[in-house]
Design a protein around this nucleic acid. Sequence first.
DNA 1: TGCGTACCGTACCGTTCGGTACGGTGTCAA
DNA 2: TTGACACCGTACCGAACGGTACGGTACGCA
Lengths: 227, 227
Amino acid sequence: MDHHEHSRHDGADTDGAPLDEAFTPRQEEVLEAALGLLVEGGERAITTAGLARAANCSKESLYKWFGDRDGVLAAMIAYQASKVRVAVGGPAAQRPADTYRADLEGFGVDLLTVLSGPASLALNRLAIGQASREGSRLGDLLVARGRRAVSTRAKALLEAGKRAGHLRFEDTQDAFETLYGLIVRDMHVRLMLGEHVPATHSDQAMANHVAGAVDQFFRLYGADAKP
Amino acid sequence: MDHHEHSRHDGADTDGAPLDEAFTPRQEEVLEAALGLLVEGGERAITTAGLARAANCSKESLYKWFGDRDGVLAAMIAYQASKVRVAVGGPAAQRPADTYRADLEGFGVDLLTVLSGPASLALNRLAIGQASREGSRLGDLLVARGRRAVSTRAKALLEAGKRAGHLRFEDTQDAFETLYGLIVRDMHVRLMLGEHVPATHSDQAMANHVAGAVDQFFRLYGADAKP
DNA sequence: TGCGTACCGTACCGTTCGGTACGGTGTCAA
DNA sequence: TTGACACCGTACCGAACGGTACGGTACGCA
């Protein structure tokens, strides 16, 4: 069925991904077109005929490659997640306090940038819209593929800061979720609802907000914080 | 099916709601049935024929009352929001520190309870799924109807705490959003994606989490916090 | 008694969409 | 040249859905 012979495996994928069905270049083109349709018109814009027309392929090929329409949606999420295979943190070397703070702020800006991106918003809207349907694992797929990446990167960053003496905490997961809450607040939901969120519009506003959030985070988890 | 008594215009609605189309008891029954369909099967379960069958009404009446299918969806959000017309905070009397802290925790528990409720999740999923369609104001409707209530209640609570000397902050909106982030984190999104979130399952777990979040909030905005 | 109103249940129509089938084209290998 | 293969474009089908129309029924009112 899936002959992944000429899939040039970019990036070191050594952490044993669960179901890594590599897509052929042609399939990636089709999925890219599907992403475009989704971003522009939402889930209802992803019709088999419309996608075939937009991608210059036949409906027969769609069903051969992805099984059915739900397979196309799942493949879109898997494909998009494979694109965001970010470098999972640096070597976590010892860094002075101010540069480590900049690292945290960089993570926060990256996080907000990803979350407010049109593709991410469209995929999240898709998965949430499908979450009610029983037997739909798009939500799990999205959280497994997308969130895991940012989570591992952030937790590595936090533990590096702990080892370097910049931070003090017991539960890494708890510290990460607090940082997430301080940075994102309810912006993600409001963005998905279509609202304008000023703090995500300009890089300047985003940097200002993240700086404040990281400041609060240090007051809660800094090495010189109260127990 | 529970037809709670037709309480038209309960609560003092003095803040000039934009479009407050009161529904007749029969219409509320239909909207209640629509809510049930939505919670169980998502947006696709709301078909005109299916709703008419579930509510024992005719399609003709649906179109007479709500205009078209989108009108039904909008009416569902307006109706649900009208049900959650919570008492907008107490008299904000001077309260000692420990009881004020309990007030904040009560707000947090209420917030998490509402957000994790099946009806709220279904409505939010609906609004988010429709947010991509141009000219759909369901998201605005939801945020205007639902979020405004919790926001005003929380901000009144925060300013009361400030006047009582328990809190110190400049920007009320900013303080509220920080509190929201500390309490909710990314649970709302994860719940909407269909994930299991332990902190929302038992009242005990919820209370524990909220207590920790309020603790963090006091360390950031308490009267004895650093500048 | 008759009439208007509001409503229910059903039948109907046009459209859209998921999914399948078929003919035609380019390519590679023997 | 011949065949196998992968693919495109189009046509087609059945089902589901939004929306409309019509007949029938209960109730209030003059």
